[in-house]
């Protein structure tokens, strides 16, 4: 299930502009990696290049390698659609499909990949995914109501359930709590801690405390200047990054002396 990620010399472009420059890093399976950095430094861009969502933007492209358990995602014969079904993604704003019920939201990914699955089996997967996302108890009695009727925090956990229902190898999260209240945030953070047992998780966050709380490893992205591409300044053990970063810029950012 959980797989390791090795990124080598990754350059990410929007048309002709280089947005993220020369990123190399390794991510261990069954770990949580937090990506932090100032706005516009390319955290989301980098994250979206890990499941080939980046290339959906017209004329966007990448150079370099993203290896998942030794398999290069950008090798010519790799199918981006399959890549995305192996690497789940949770977005900043909760986005359950508004026309589908809670049940159908969770089942959506499975129905794509395994067309003729017996109803009972599907029921099991939906229940397990919702339980894993700590949402089952709250929605068990209204599985067939629209997902858009849930609270923001519940919707985000529904999106997590939807993402893990297809048993991905890796889970990418782009500021999953930034639209949520503190209690919902707490629940998602707890959930991330539990999901770590099964998945490799990469999370982008603006909240330094959150990075410190949930992650094992933290990577700091920065901009050299206005109009310059973003780059990875340093990545390391979360405790080390927050107590004794090796780079001055990291230290300034973490202690709020940025800019």
């Amino acid at each position: 299930m959980a797989k390791r990620i090795d990124v080598a010399d990754l350059n990410i472009y929007y048309d002709k502009t280089l947005a993220v420059q020369d990123v190399s890093l390794s991510i261990e399976p069954r770990s949580v990696t937090a990506l932090i950095g100032p706005s516009g430094c390319g955290k989301s861009t980098f994250l979206r290049s890990l499941n080939r969502m980046h290339e959906l933007i017209p004329r966007a492209r990448v150079e370099g390698k993203v290896m998942v358990d030794g398999q290069d995602l950008y090798a010519p014969d790799v199918d981006p659609v399959t890549v995305r079904s192996h690497i789940g993604m949770v977005f900043q704003r909760p986005n359950p499909f508004p026309t589908m019920s809670i049940y159908d939201n969770v089942a959506a990914g499975i129905k794509l990949n395994a067309k003729r699955m017996p109803k009972s089996e599907l029921d099991d997967i939906v229940e397990r995914s919702l339980r894993q996302a700590n949402l089952w108890d709250e929605v068990a009695d209204r599985l067939h109501k629209p997902g858009s009727g849930l609270s923001g925090g519940q919707q985000q956990r529904l999106c997590i359930a939807r993402a893990i229902a297809v048993q991905p190898d890796i889970l990418l999260m782009d500021e999953p709590c930034s639209a949520l209240d503190p209690i919902s945030t707490q629940k998602i953070e707890d959930l991330i801690g539990e999901l770590k047992a099964d998945y490799t998780i990469v999370i982008v966050t603006h909240n330094m405390q959150q990075a410190a709380r949930v992650s094992d490893v933290t990577g700091f992205f920065n901009l050299r200047g206005v109009g310059q591409p973003g780059h990875l300044v340093e990545i390391g053990d979360t405790a080390t990054i927050f107590s004794a970063p090796s780079n001055k810029a990291t230290e300034d950012y973490i202690s709020g002396r940025f800019g």
């Binding site: 299930m1 998942v68 398999q71 995602l73 090798a75 014969d77 790799v78 199918d79 399959t82 890549v83 079904s85 192996h86 499975i110 990949n113 395994a114 699955m117 297809v166 048993q167 190898d169």
Partner: peptide, 9 residues
């Protein structure tokens, strides 16, 4: 059904 599919189709 899901996980063992190779990335290269």
């Amino acid at each position: 059904a899901l996980s063992d599919r190779p990335l290269t189709q």
